[in-house]
Amino acid sequence: MTKLAIAIDLHRCIGCNTCALACKMQNNVPDGMLWNRVLTENCDIYDGAEGIYPNLTRTYLPLACQHCENAACQRVCPTGATYKDDKGRIEIDYDKCIGCRMCMAACPYNARVFNWNEPVRSTGFNYGDARVPVRHKGVMEKCTLCKERTDAGEEPRCVQCCPTDARIFGDLDDPNSEISVAIREHGGYVLLEEKGTKPQVHYFES
């Protein structure tokens, strides 16, 4: 089996948002939403800090679909539009999505975004990878783990563009893959482990 995944080194994440915009570009993500966003964890201002000056800490947390092994979104989708594919990615078949947003309510990570309106792009044209299908109003979308790129053996765009090499992409089912080795070496954690969703996106601090 193949279980494609991403591991993110939070120590190397400088909160630059390059991954967020790279994803937006690659996937033709319309205005008003992002598939991949970066949070300053537990702060209400970006680049904020936890604690009281000068005893401060800060974590930049890039957040997108966690491609859970036990995906809540997939379970609740009434039409099977959200599915786990043979490479271990959670994908959406836009033609099957009826826009009920059950998956959105079910996702503990707020990873999904919905086309509430007909998508608008301030460029006036569709940018990004030509292989990425265009979505219309009324369908759910989210990180596909760059399906079109990873199917062709390329890295996801966020991984390719990360200026600090904080992201590792690979197959969790291959014990010798860079990602498996990194997770073994650094330990790390998954988000909301207690929910039992078994995310395939891992976070660690080198």
Partner: peptide, 9 residues
Amino acid sequence: DGRLSVIEP
């Protein structure tokens, strides 16, 4: 189609 669509390293 004459539009800048992807910028990558």
